[in-house]
């Protein structure tokens, strides 16, 4: 169980507090402003965690709805955005479990790329991005969550520790190992690809 974050996790006033107070009173405009403020980061987080852009939008939408519909339970013990990201992480975890059951797919398999479509620079860029997404999929969930929160979402280390409910040293260790594995997957993949041909 991931415990709620404590004030000491950030130690600073929550800049979202006025909007959160308005949203709690049913102010639709405040809800819209908060979604505007965090939609890119929540969708990006969900994308990194579920590995599919269309699914990521669904996960982000569900996370926002869950957050605002349970806003009465938010007591300000962490920043609003930390709490929101926690909900997004758990929504993404649930999505992955459901998808894995439905498709009976093995998550974490080898990278299987089709590079024959590569031609122009735009296509190559798309393929390169796809390789990174697939490499990310091969990471264990705990490492993937940590590197996505840092490198995709840009959260600082204390916020990541609060969002994941683990000590900051664990966050550093997970990011270090996650990036190292990602780099290894990206570096070795072309050789594997070549060996298959």
């Amino acid at each position: 169980m991931v415990p709620p974050a404590r004030p000491s996790d950030t130690g600073e006033p929550d800049p979202d507090e006025p909007l959160v107070a308005r949203a709690r009173r049913g102010d639709e405009g405040a809800v819209r402003l908060l979604v505007d403020r965090y939609q890119r980061r929540v969708i990006g987080l969900a994308w990194g965690l579920v590995g599919d852009h269309a699914d990521a939008e669904d996960v982000a939408q569900e996370a926002f709805l869950r957050a605002f519909r349970s806003l009465r339970t938010f007591r300000g013990q962490s920043r609003f955005r930390t709490w929101l990201f926690q909900i997004a992480i758990n929504t993404a975890r649930t999505h992955r479990r459901t998808r894995a059951r439905r498709q009976e797919e093995a998550v974490g398999g080898s990278i299987d790329l089709d590079t024959t479509a590569g031609g122009g620079s735009l296509e190559q860029a798309v393929i390169a991005r796809d390789r990174i997404h697939r490499a990310l999929e091969t990471l264990p969930a705990d490492l993937r969550e940590a590197v996505v929160l840092r490198d995709v979402n840009g959260l600082d280390y204390r916020e990541i520790a609060a969002a994941l409910g683990v000590p900051i040293g664990t966050v550093e260790s997970r990011i270090f190992r996650g990036r190292a594995r990602l780099r290894q997957a990206l570096t070795h993949e072309p050789h594997d690809q070549g060996a298959r041909r």
Binding site: M1, V2, P3, P4, R66, A67, S70, T73, Q86, I87, N90, R93, T94, P140, A141, D142, E145, L164, G165, V166, P167, I168, G169, T170, E172, S173, R174, F176
Partner: peptide
């Protein structure tokens, strides 16, 4: 909290660096 946050089932050993 139980309603919104699922247990971390990722497991794995944690090598706290600090």
């Amino acid at each position: 909290w139980d309603d919104t946050v699922q247990p971390d089932t990722t497991g794995g050993d944690e090598a706290g660096a600090q």
